[in-house]
Structure formats: structure tokens, C-alpha cells
Design a binder for these strands. Sequence first.
DNA 1: TTTTTTTACGCAATCGTTCCCGGTATCGTT
DNA 2: AACGATACCGGGAACGATTGCGTAAAAAAA
Lengths: 351, 351
Amino acid sequence: MKFEAVTIKDIARALGLSTSTVSRALRDSYEISQETKKLVLDYAQKINYHPNPIALSLKERRSRSIGMIVCEIANSYFSQVINGAESIAYNRGYNVIIGQSRESFEREMLNLQYLTSRSIDGLIISVSAETKDFTYFKELSQKGMPIVFFDRIVDNVETHKVIVDNYKGAYDATVHLIRNGYRNIATLSNAPVLSIARDRLAGYKAALQDNGLEVKEELIRHCVHGGMLLDEVETAMKELLALTNKPDAMLAGADKLTTGCLRILKAKGLKVPDDMALVGFSNTDLTELLDPPLSVIRQPAFEMGEVATDFLLQLIESKRPVTEFETRVLSTELIVRESSRPVLNKARALV
Amino acid sequence: MKFEAVTIKDIARALGLSTSTVSRALRDSYEISQETKKLVLDYAQKINYHPNPIALSLKERRSRSIGMIVCEIANSYFSQVINGAESIAYNRGYNVIIGQSRESFEREMLNLQYLTSRSIDGLIISVSAETKDFTYFKELSQKGMPIVFFDRIVDNVETHKVIVDNYKGAYDATVHLIRNGYRNIATLSNAPVLSIARDRLAGYKAALQDNGLEVKEELIRHCVHGGMLLDEVETAMKELLALTNKPDAMLAGADKLTTGCLRILKAKGLKVPDDMALVGFSNTDLTELLDPPLSVIRQPAFEMGEVATDFLLQLIESKRPVTEFETRVLSTELIVRESSRPVLNKARALV
DNA sequence: TTTTTTTACGCAATCGTTCCCGGTATCGTT
DNA sequence: AACGATACCGGGAACGATTGCGTAAAAAAA
């Protein structure tokens, strides 16, 4: 089964012209007479001619498609980012090829090789939790492949990046918990190598210290798969709940960690926020319908996709090598709901 | 900025061979000596040669990419389908280009034209709620473009299709509500033109009739945007709640309708299931964490993506025109939770 | 009328790869 | 020694489109 398209040759043959003339007529070249142009244009319209993008790609040595690697599509945050990226790319005549790393370095590399072998013009990526070795990105970048990092960025590759103010997001959320009377705040963090985990953890620690609270290492748990496996969340929670001085609140550092945490607490029969308050990074629009409605730190995911794609297209379409790079930092939004309700007796003491 | 790749010519030049020989050596042709093959292969490995897929596409007249159009990516059901599709496509050397119709016919056509102009080898699609005119699909199919429909299928285009047993899904859920003592069951349905809406509605009606209950048209509400706009859900719910004989249970026919319904009920201060029970089609993994935990009809979304892609690749890679088509019907799963808890006094009367 | 300029078009190379034809050695066979 | 068979390799067209260059005819200038 073949889907046969009309080519410039068909037009040339039908009209008794050369392919060059047809090509030029279609591109409205000055060296083609008005009548010929009209003839060609009308006929092209009639037989529904569309230039073959593959032939163009071969000629122009650009595919007009960009690669995008995320952990997983079925994640509200990433699907919103993809959404934003698609919207920009589509308008500029590019298409987005999506790959999923599923937090695995191996799958990330596989996707990367696949995408580059499909001759993409550029790459947008949020690295996997397992990725410790960034030399491949560096090499790729040095060979001239335009790359934009978002969300989970890497420090030692110089290029455009898009993130949110993870430090402030975590800081504000932690302060919010403290203000509401919580004193023993634990955190569920991503793999320590990830930029987002580092920044969020730093914000968490700073908020504690700025409010005269001690940073206790036993209250900091890392889930190296970012909550993709419920097991690791369960283990972390078990450890926290086994402490003699149990935490009274949780700060969860990722979408799956937030919902995973709630899931485990429910399974253990603990009440949120009475037994344990919860605030987490999340972009699902269902958080307000949860039991209890969840306080969340929300990221402008769609906008991140837009900015990342805009950055990438700037790099791709730049005539000269770009040497000045920007790291765009967007703001998070703290949405306060039931899951971090004030502890009355303690809250008063602080205010 | 250009990302320069090595070509077969580079190898030929470096080794003092012709491009034909190099090409043949790489493809392990019998008419190339072992030594030459080894020479070429080793060198290709060394300089990290990868065949240019664009040149191959031009030659073979196939792009090895397939188009996929869904309503929106940021929807748990569709993102799971995409996931399944990607997994199969990736393994068979294809990539998936995704387009979003956002329930708009115009955007659907735009995406379709874009995808076909990007010379895709085939198309997987779940049509938008606005799509009433299927001639374009028919034409495309007749011109030889392999198409597979899933979820929202169209009747008058003969090709492979993948659906779930929507009739049975809705039937079972409705029977479940009846068994649990609910007697005045309303339903929130998709646009009436959609196959899924028709089938689910039919299942709902049959369940009522088979259990001696009357089908009341005033209890059937259609949301033409499938719940994408909360407004339409709110309007529908308002109308239902304004009835003298208010419904005591709801069957929601789509992901966004289910959560939208819960959202509205909560906003109106109604208790689920005491004031109104709720069962709905949904594929989010958060439904059990909602307040109350939601009874849902779950679709094997990932598998649907797999099957659809497998079907499509069969069509694409078939030597002869395919004339026998299959409509694969997968099973839904009814997951019973709190939101449809038995009404004690009534439930007993029935059992 | 002759020369120059302009107009309008065709030829052929190019992008990277495959593949149909050839062509030339090197054998073995008679 | 002559022939055919086999093994091995290169030339060049093709895929669809663009584009530099060449050139005929028409128009303008001399």
C-alpha cells in the first residue's frame, strides 16, 4: 500500500515545462513570467500539490523536526510541557518527536541515539534521574547540535536552559508549613544528582534554618526513581514513620512523590493533615479533588515548553554560532489547601 | 549552527572505494569481499557512521514516521495510549508524530494536513467531538493512506479499528449502580455523534430496561466538548439538579466528565455518594485518592495504543492492498470504590 | 540594421543513498 | 590456449526539490 503524492515533475510534464521553471514559479521567482506562474500555480492547486518535505530536508540538510526527551508522557507536568512545546513548534513549521527515558540512563541514551540518527535539528531534554554522565550531551553540543535543557538541567553544558525557581518554591512551601505550626518537617526528594532535587532541598533547608529550626538528615529521604516506583516511596515513608521523633509534615519534591506520599499515608491509615501535613510539587488538576485537597507548588509547565522551544528554534535558526546563553527562571505558584491546614495551638504561638 | 554528519562518501573517499561498494559492504552484500567489508565496517564504526534516514526516506519513499491525532496529550487516557503506541513504533523503527485536535474539527483538519504534508506513512486517530464529516478520511484512505481508528471510530471508513466494549462497560456500571440501590440514574455523555457516546449510552439504556427501570430523556445530558470546558458540565449538572425528580446517581461517559462531575458536585456542597452516587469512565491513577474514592470504568489504554500501532504497521508493511479488516474489541474493567457505595435500605430490597 | 540588454526558460549539479548495469580480474575446465 | 563461470567492484541514474549558469528570443538601445 503506497500513498502516492504528486511531484513537481508531474506538473512540469503536464504543462510542458521544465522542473526548474515549475519550482521557480511556485516560489514566485522574478525570472518567471506572470502567465507561467499563474498556469503553474493554478495547476498545482488543482492537483493538490505539496512539496515533499523529505526532499527538501535532504537538500537543505535540516529535517524541521526537533527531539524532546522526558521521563514519561503520562505525567501531568510533562504532558503540559509537551503541549507548550508542540504549540510553538507547530506554528513555526516544526514537529516534535517525543522520547521517554523512564528515569533510565540507558533508555535515555537509546532515545538520544535514535533521535540523532533520525537527524533532528535540535533537542529539548529533561534528564533522567539516573544520568550522572553528561559527556554525551557535551559532545553533542560541541558537534553543533542545538540543545535546550529544561526542568532537570545540567550545569556543565553551556546552552539555553529553562527552569522554575525551585529554591524559592520549596522555601515558600516550607515556610508556609512552619507558619502553620509544623515543626518537624520531612522531605521526600528526587535523586540527589538532579538539579531540581538539589535546589528544592536547598530551599527546604534554608527555610528551616531561617526560622530557627534544625535541619535533620534523617528527615531527608531520596527516591532515586522520582516516585515512579511506589515501592521506594513506601520504603522512605516507612523509615520516616519509624523515627522516634516522627515528622508532622511532609514536603514532596515531585508530582509522583506527592501523590505517592498521599497514597502511602492513606494506606497506613494516617490522616492528612492531622497526623501528617503534606505539601508537594504537582501539576495535576485533580489535587483539589483529593482527600484532603492538596496544597501544591505548581509550575508553569505549558510556558516552560513554550520558552524551551522558542530558545531551541533561536539556536537552530541562528546564522552564526550562538555564544551568549540564557537560563530563564520562571516562578512557581503555591496553592494552599486543606492538606497543610494550620495546627491551631502551635500556629498561634508563632504568629 | 549545523550538525554535520558523516556520509557514505566520506568513507568511500577515505578508503579509496566507490560509494556503491561502501553501501553494499554496509548492507552485507554477497558481492563484496570479506576484507573489504571488514575494512568498511571498521571504519564506519570508527567515525560513527549512521545512514541518513532522510536520504533513505527519499529513496524508499517512506518516512518511517506515523501520525497520531488525539484530542489532547494532557489526558491520562490518551497519554497512556500514546505510550503504548510509542513502545511498539519505537521497537519497529518508526517514530510517532503527535497532533492535538482539542475537540475541534478545524484543528483536526489542520493537523491532518500538516501530517500528510510531512509525508507520514500512516495515521492513527481518535476523531474529535466536532467531526461529523468523514469524507476526508475516506478520501485519504482510498488514496492509499493506511489509517487505524481507535476509541472514537467512524463507521463508514473500512479499515482496522481498536475500541473497548463501551456498551458492556456502561451496562455493567449501570447495573452495578442499580444493584447498589440507585433508581434514578442520570448520565453525562459525550457529543452524540461520537461512537463511544452512542455505545455507552446504549449500554446505559439497556441496563435500565433490563432491570425494569424507565429510560428518561431528561436524565441524559450531552457535553459536546467531552468535558474539556467545565462550563458545559456545570450547565448539565444544573439542569439535572433542577429536576423535580432529582437523580440519585450519575454515570459519566469520559475522563473529564467524571472528574468534572465530581468537581461540580463538590462545588455545590453535595455529598458523594450520599446525595449523589458517581461512576465514570476514567483512566487516571488518582481516582482512588479522590474524595470519595471513585468507582471507575477503566480502559486498557496502553494496550489500545499497542494494538492500534501494530495494526497500522501491518497495513503499512503489507505488500498487497489489505481488504480484510479487523475491529479489535478490548475489555473494560469496573473498579468499585466508595462513590457508588450501596444505599442500604434500597439495596436490600433488590437482592 | 546591428548591438546590447532584458526576459524567460532549460540544463545539470546537488543533497545521501540504493541498485541496475556494466566491467575486469582470477579461476577452473576442456 | 580458449572459454565460461565466478567474484568483486565502479559508473551512473534515480528519489524530489533547489539553484547557478547558460542561452534563445524578444525588446530596447545604438
